[in-house]
């Protein structure tokens, strides 16, 4: 059995406060809480008040190439921006990329020892737009790559293994 962690998002309850962004970026700062910067957050709220659109999105997988084409949703007569509901850190947009290194950001459900009761964004969302659930599912627990690996992988994909290796070797010497 494997544990599945779910953040339930109720867009109708979101008030656009961006507390989730603030707290996420603070948690992932090094040292922890030493800085805040929503641009580094692994949850972003896409909003357009004049259309009454509020969509909290959690950062998902890094993708090397964008999809073949884009999607645009209309729900309840409101037209959402292109790819509004996609979680990918994707070359087509600047969402979920570290503003300094450009490395992809990915939600880790606030990986922590001992584990948090709930991810921090859920804890800080007093409007209950974000709620948390855990459930068991058939299947093997997957080995999760470390944050560093995700970053390195994306660098390798971008620049090729050799360039990354060379750069690392140079850095190690310096």
């Amino acid at each position: 059995m494997k544990k599945v962690k779910v953040i339930k998002i109720d867009v109708d309850k979101c008030n656009g406060c961006r507390s989730c962004e603030a707290v996420c970026s603070a948690f992932h700062a090094a040292p922890k809480y030493s800085s805040t910067n929503p641009e580094r957050s692994r949850i972003r709220v896409l909003f357009d008040p004049l259309k009454d659109i509020y969509v909290p999105v959690l950062a998902g997988e890094y993708t090397e190439a964008e999809c073949n084409g884009r999607d645009i949703y209309t729900i309840d007569g409101k037209q959402y921006d292109e790819c509004s509901f996609c979680r990918a850190s994707c070359p087509s947009r600047d969402l979920f990329k570290d503003p300094d290194s450009d490395l992809p950001l990915k939600c880790d459900m606030c990986e922590e020892e001992p584990p948090l009761e709930e991810p921090l964004c859920v804890q800080w969302c007093l409007s209950d737009a974000l709620t948390y659930e855990e459930r068991e599912e058939e299947g093997e627990e997957e080995e999760k790559p470390e944050e560093m690996e995700i970053g390195l992988e994306s660098l390798v994909k971008k620049h090729g293994l050799k360039t990354v290796k060379d750069s690392l070797a140079r850095l190690a010497k310096g």
Partner: peptide
Amino acid sequence: RLISCYNCPMKCGGIITHPKLER
């Protein structure tokens, strides 16, 4: 909809939709 300011759980603002006005 009730809306907030940056990083605040209170909802002191509202989105106003009126047939005679833009939002």
